[in-house]
Amino acid sequence: MDISAEAVTKADWPARADEAQRSLKKHFYNEKTGIMNQWFPREYFRPDDNFYYWWHAHVLDVLVDAYERTHDPELALQIREYSRSLRAYNGGTFLHNYYDDMEWTALALLRAFQATGEEEYKTAVLELWTDIQTAWNDHFGGGMSWKKDQLDYKNTPANAPAAILAARLYSLLRNPEDLEWAVRIFEWNQAHLVDPGSGLVWDGINRLGDGRVDYDWAFTYCQGVFLGAGVELYRVTREQKYADAALRTAGACINRLCDPDTLLLPDEGIDDTGLFKGILIRYFAQLEKQFPGAIPVREVILANADALWNKGLDHRSVLCGPSWELKPILPVQLSVQLSGLMLLEGAAVMQRRSTSSELE
């Protein structure tokens, strides 16, 4: 290992993640609504802006990241208050028109339940899961619809997270129907939206009502959730085909989407796409946990985290932009900030596992 690589490995990533967690709360939290503003400064918000419900599921996710890392009881309180505020802001329910939004909320609440043991999260997850199952229909031979008012549009963002959720519920509750759901959803996603030649994952089919696959939409997000589903199914079944699918997609993702010299992930812009890289990092970390060293995802996570910390952060505010090697320009969106925070939490996970291995 060269000196620079050693410096990246030995950096205090948990402390850096803590700084980013504090920045998120300082710059985005709205005491009146109890949830995060979608812009900083908040003056950039317009009355006709969309309410991006699914971004707030990822706020819950990063709060759980911090709680799992620190076991700070104050964070458990923040998770509870945020989840209740999100439900209130969404009209007193976690249910939504977009199936993928509900899936993300269910995944975050399931992690909150497993981290804290608080039953209200489990109750909410099961309510969401019952509604999410209505996404499955016979258009294109099955698969989960993206949203309730466009049932003939199927995409990876609605299918792979649902497979992850079903597999995790099976692991927790041992209901055979949940495993059947996970397998069925994963297999549909693999058959229809994964390049059989490379393992690269496409976004969706029939978005415009023409039956076409969006072959040119190869987002980091889709790679992350599909390989994440493969990891979860391998964990609960130990069937090698799921491991092979996850590792193949991870390799294709690195080869296609990472800079070959620096391993940096691309700038995918703002709005929803601002969250995509952070989601990939989350599931890269899960892949590394299950198959340490099999694919150089640890190197990808640490290379991107180092670039963000040393080039892409405004250290006065600890805000970041959609490029992890360029300083942010105001305004900063919540989605983009969450992606950077997920990256720093991912680096903290890599460091913790490395330290644990050295002590064994």
Results as ranks from 00 to 15, higher is better:
G142W: 01
L193E: 05
G143N: 04
E187Q: 13
Y153H: 15
E127Y: 00
Y153M: 12
E119Y: 03
F140S: 09
N155C: 10
L193R: 05
E187S: 02
D131G: 00
E120M: 13
E127C: 01
L165R: 04
I132G: 06
D149M: 09
T116H: 03
Y170I: 03
Q190D: 12
T156H: 04
I164R: 15
V125G: 02
N189T: 12
S171W: 04
E119N: 11
Q133I: 07
L110K: 03
T156I: 10
L151V: 07
E180P: 00
Q114W: 02
E120S: 14
Y170R: 14
K147Q: 15
N189A: 15
R168Y: 06
L126S: 11
R111Q: 08
A166P: 01
R111A: 09
F113E: 13
L193N: 06
A115K: 00
E187C: 02
T130N: 09
D149N: 14
L193M: 12
N137H: 05
I185H: 00
D138I: 00
G141C: 09
I164K: 13
L193Y: 03
A160V: 06
Y153F: 15
S171K: 14
A162E: 04
E177R: 13
L169P: 12
L151W: 07
A135W: 06
L151Y: 07
A166Y: 03
F113P: 13
E118K: 06
W188F: 06
A115F: 13
V125M: 02
N175E: 15
H139R: 11
L109C: 06
F186S: 14
L169Y: 04
A124E: 15
P161K: 13
N189H: 09
V125P: 10
L200F: 15
R174A: 08
Y121S: 11
K122G: 11
A108T: 01
M144D: 00
D195Y: 00
L110P: 01
G199A: 03
V125Y: 00
L110S: 03
W146I: 05
G199V: 08
M144S: 10
F140A: 12
Q190W: 13
T123V: 12
A163H: 02
R111N: 08
G117M: 05
G197S: 08
W146E: 06
Q150H: 07
L173S: 09
E127S: 09
K154V: 09
G142Q: 03
D149Q: 13
Q150K: 14
A115S: 15
R168A: 03
Y153D: 10
P176V: 03
E177C: 00
D149A: 05
K154P: 08
T156P: 12
A167E: 08
R174Y: 02
V183G: 13
G143V: 01
G117V: 05
